[in-house]
Design a protein around this nucleic acid. Structure first.
Lengths: 138, 138
DNA sequence: ACTATTTAGTCAGGCAGCTTGACCAAATTT
DNA sequence: AAATTTGGTCAAGCTGCCTGACTAAATAGT
């Protein structure tokens, strides 16, 4: 229960700060999409695999984020079927805000724990976490 | 990310084991309902508050869990408007299975950590967790 | 080189789980 | 005893996901 509550508090904390920063038309789930698209970009199919949803659902989400100005589509450099999704400047600004929000949310925790406690925390979470399977969909 | 992944792994682990135990017609969200209903029981309104959803949604969920044999309705002892939701024997069996599933899922973690590491983990999670707001709905 | 299969993506329709709004009956307040 | 609040349901609608069917480009097989 503590673990679930902490996870929820983290998501709520980040979401609240991101919204407060002016990005109030997106949901936490979109953050997981941004994480995959940032960097070299991603195709709809790659996004779908990362989020563990169907291509159709990923396509809809991409459409929404494009419409809202966070993503853009460009022709894929090597595959004429595919189209590359990348962050717009607004998308980059939003991920920067999310990073800052995460830091701010975790800051009191960072101050409250000693170095060895942080280490123990990482160890425990890593022990439990399954690689991949990040996005909570329940 | 580690924290979210760990939370997801915990939920997936419990869900998988509960399903494997034969309770394959319910979702993790129902576990949070059982937690509130178990004990002295609860009304639809109390359930709604606990799950942070509307009364209508809680009513539907209760209806479903009654239909599937996990809950039962009885007249409320002191309020003729209200009806008390309680666990059936099947509901109790399911919560026992869920408890066992949680223990089994966390068992490797328990073996891997020293006492002081467990203590540090609790401290850290408690620091972050908001009282109430357990159910992850994002 | 030509056919067959796979892969990236979209269109269409449907469903589950939630919402808001309107309402009734019992309890509580004034 | 009238007015308000509270517990619960009915009805309708929305959203985010799903399955199924399809097109076009890439890749594999012969």
């Amino acid at each position: 229960m503590l673990l679930l509550s902490a996870a929820r508090a983290l998501v709520d904390g980040i979401d609240g700060r991101v919204r407060a920063a002016g990005f109030d038309d997106i949901r936490p789930a979109h953050g997981f999409a941004f994480a995959r698209v940032s960097g070299a970009g991603a195709t709809v199919t790659e996004l779908a695999e990362h989020l563990e949803i169907t291509k159709q659902a990923a396509s809809q989400m991409a459409e929404e984020l494009i419409r809202k100005g966070y993503l853009q589509r460009s022709p894929h450099p090597t595959d004429a079927r595919a189209r590359l999704l990348t962050l717009t400047e607004k998308g980059h600004a939003c991920t920067r805000a999310a990073d800052a929000a995460a830091v701010a949310t975790l800051e009191p925790l960072g101050r409250a724990l000693t170095g060895s406690q942080k280490q123990a925390l990482r160890t425990a979470l890593r022990q439990l976490a399954t690689p991949g399977r990040i996005r909570p969909t329940w």
